[in-house]
């Protein structure tokens, strides 16, 4: 384990007019690792995510990146700090081709391309890496869910991030597609990108993550390796317990 965490969240709280969506959540993300965040629907995962990514200002709490306080940074400043994200509900640039989608990303971020050629070269590199190269001339609205999810990742990667936040990147995929997505996420991680992901699919979380954070009713109820978390009696009760009853 490296000594310093790349992302550190302390006492993060979000209240929407009296409704507490996230309450006093603290955790750290190790540099170079894959950290997962799980929890039942409505547990506050996406709210936490959106706060870390600058989309919602937190009511209380602080977010540190490499020791620097980034709590009040705006969403569009993140790629300049080498942080990129994907969206749970895919947001492809519908009327642009896949290639143009990625070129747009190449123009921004901390190492923005200076001209069209540079942007295009990098875009093609990213498309080959994510396996979308063959489909680069297709309009992104005409692609299916698996490819749009890949495109989300390709767009994020084109900004050359150091940290990548993946919001339910495998929801809605069948087992084969999930396996492919897992392989891609591992490949991204091996290229030196730290990953924090929200996921519903346990298979993915168990096979990818070195550390898992469990949220329930907006509070962190467990943290540890996937095995530790899955054997935690309280986690089993609130989240995984139901499954065992059905069996």
């Amino acid at each position: 384990m490296e000594d310093k965490p790349i992302i550190e969240v302390t006492g993060l709280t979000k209240r929407f007019k009296g409704l507490t969506a996230v309450n006093d959540v603290s955790f750290t993300v190790r540099k170079g690792g894959i950290t997962g965040m799980i929890g039942p629907n409505g547990a506050g995962k996406s709210t936490t995510f959106n706060m870390i990514c600058g989309y919602y200002p937190p009511t209380e709490g602080k977010i540190f990146y490499n020791g620097e306080d980034i709590t009040n940074k705006r969403a569009y400043e993140y790629t300049n700090m080498k942080i990129a994200r994907t969206f749970q509900i895919m947001k492809p640039l519908k009327n642009l081709t896949v290639l143009d989608n990625v070129i747009a990303s190449c123009y921004f971020g901390h190492s923005a391309a200076k001209n069209r050629h540079e942007a295009m070269e990098r875009a093609i590199e990213v498309l080959k890496f994510t396996g979308l190269y063959e489909k680069r001339h297709v309009l992104s609205k005409e692609m299916g869910t698996p490819d749009q999810k890949r495109l989300e990742m390709a767009r994020a990667l084109a900004t050359k991030p150091e940290v990548l936040f993946l919001d339910e990147n495998m929801a809605g995929l069948n087992p084969t597609e999930t396996a492919e997505a897992i392989a891609l996420i591992r490949k991204i991680n091996e290229s030196g990108v730290t990953i924090l992901l929200i996921e519903h699919i346990m298979q993915a979380v168990v096979s990818l993550c070195e550390k898992v954070i469990v949220l329930h009713h907006g509070e962190k109820i467990a943290e540890g390796t996937p095995e530790e978390v899955m054997n935690d009696p309280y986690v089993m009760e609130v989240y995984l317990g139901k499954k065992e009853e059905q069996q």
């Binding site: 600058g54 300049n80 990129a84 994907t86 642009l96 923005a112 994020a156």
Partner: peptide
């Protein structure tokens, strides 16, 4: 249309949140 500004504008047209995610100040 073919330069950085054009791509920023088109990204904003398609989705402002996505634009912010890749570092465009809408």
């Amino acid at each position: 249309d073919n330069t950085k500004i054009g791509y920023a504008l088109k990204t904003i047209r398609e989705d402002e949140d996505a634009a912010a995610a890749i570092g465009i100040n809408p």
